[in-house]
Design a protein around this nucleic acid. Structure first.
Lengths: 254, 254
DNA sequence: ATGTCTTTGTGAACGCGTGCACAAAGATGG
DNA sequence: CCATCTTTGTGCACGCGTTCACAAAGACAT
């Protein structure tokens, strides 16, 4: 999450727990699918199964939004779609800028699910002058020099950072200074932002490493019970650059 | 554990909390940066700042791994890099397949941070026959028909799904049947897997929607008045924002 | 050795999130 | 209207994660 003081000034007004907020998009997606199949109502049990959560949890989540169900029947699909959309702020359109139009940035720009619901890509921004004017996803890439103007002109409050790690903090600072208050960070770096700015990160290599941890544990379980070694690890292993990780990642300078 | 006391606190592979595991990659990244700058030791305070977490949390996290610090001095950077790498299973090489070589899949294949540390892209797989043989990131795309053979031949246990939502579950089932036990899912769908298989999801639109929620809340805060409406709402728009225990009309549209 | 100073490691308290289990609410049928 | 059946909404207990605060451990100077 956001670094430094993550002091929540006012989560009080509407006490929806963060964990619940994080699940609302999941419910919304399942409900939208039901809506397209013209299903009129669903029980908490059915919807929970579709969203991959516990039904009690789902009911409690909805209870934070108000009592939108009918006992003995379930929830009205269309009504719930509307209520959740409104709660998430998707009844309005959010202009978004993507900064860093490399492989990932371009893929994000082309990603359909992006603009499909409540979000609109207002501009693509890159620091490379050679990219300027080049069309990506049917939209000309603009240069970083115009970042502040673009933010201001389009009333952008959400920014997506897809730059190399080395540039991310600098881009972040400029976005925030220009008025952006929510950032989705794809760069493998910890971003520091002032209070009032939300940061969410999407980090590919972190996810992979977490999977590797569990994978290793699974492998270690079935094989020998112990095979104790490594307990006597190298005292300090000064230049212990052994094994496959001796190479230096070319993408992320400090 | 430096004191040679009883090797008791079960700090080994079993007892590491999930939340801690999720932060280890963060620490590792910060430590790697320090290592490249030849910094010999760091205090929990410094490292915590670099990783964007609380120092007490960091110390407690490390305590699950064992006692690798020196009181009055801090932690030895190289040693800690090695210990965390080993704990995460990054001292070995994990072959990974990416299924679905569209915009996103191609971007992932090209992503440098992918292969830089412990992971190796073993194969790119796509269902489109037109893609077969086409080089992406210096590697020929292979057809889905060969999925099982590829998994088996390369001993792949980690799969990345970057297909459209409609194909994700099917691909997932085939991956699991072929022996994959960890899946990183980029498709906007809930995947169902048998016990023993780990799934982590990276969902762009969910992250954006969470940001939109907070963004809306910020906007509603400064304009103290209830400026909730204003957007064209369906006939069912019955705005009743009360606490969960307030009386709710629940006028259900038929 | 002794004392001082720095920093770790951790016991304990607290808060959040989850899941159980059940009463209340409404639908439905006689 | 009454009985029964279904499903919601939620009180409660429990476990995990976070944070505080401090004793213990070691470095370093004298």
């Amino acid at each position: 999450m956001a670094t430094g003081r993550t002091h929540r000034p006012a989560t009080r007004s509407r006490g929806i727990p963060e964990a619940t907020v994080a699940r609302l998009p999941l419910y919304l997606r399942a409900l939208t699918a039901l809506s397209e199949r013209s299903v009129p109502t669903v029980s908490s049990e059915e919807l929970a199964a579709a969203a991959g959560v516990n039904s009690a949890k789902l009911r409690k989540d909805f209870s934070y939004l108000g009592s939108y169900g009918t006992r003995g029947v379930g929830y009205d699909v269309e009504y719930l779609v509307y209520q959740i959309s409104r709660e998430l702020g998707l009844t309005q359109d959010w202009p978004v800028v993507i900064v860093g139009i490399g492989n990932l940035g371009a893929a994000l720009a082309n990603y359909g699910g992006f603009a499909s619901r409540g979000f609109r890509v207002a501009a693509l921004i890159d620091a490379d002058p050679a990219m300027a004017g080049k069309p990506v996803a049917g939209m000309p890439v603009q240069h970083t020099d115009d970042l502040e103007r673009i933010i201001s002109d389009n009333g952008v409050s959400i920014g997506v950072i897809a730059t190399p790690a080395g540039a991310a903090q600098q881009v972040c600072d400029r976005l925030v200074a220009a008025g952006v208050t929510s950032i989705l960070n794809f760069a493998p770096t910890v971003l520091t932002v002032p209070d009032g700015v939300d940061v969410r990160k999407v980090d590919l290599s972190i996810e992979l490493q977490i999977l590797a941890f569990h994978e290793q544990r699974k492998a270690g379980e079935e094989s020998a019970a112990d095979a104790v070694e490594g307990t006597a690890a190298p005292a300090v292993a000064k230049d212990h650059r052994k094994g496959p990780d001796g190479d230096v990642p070319a993408v992320m300078p400090a």
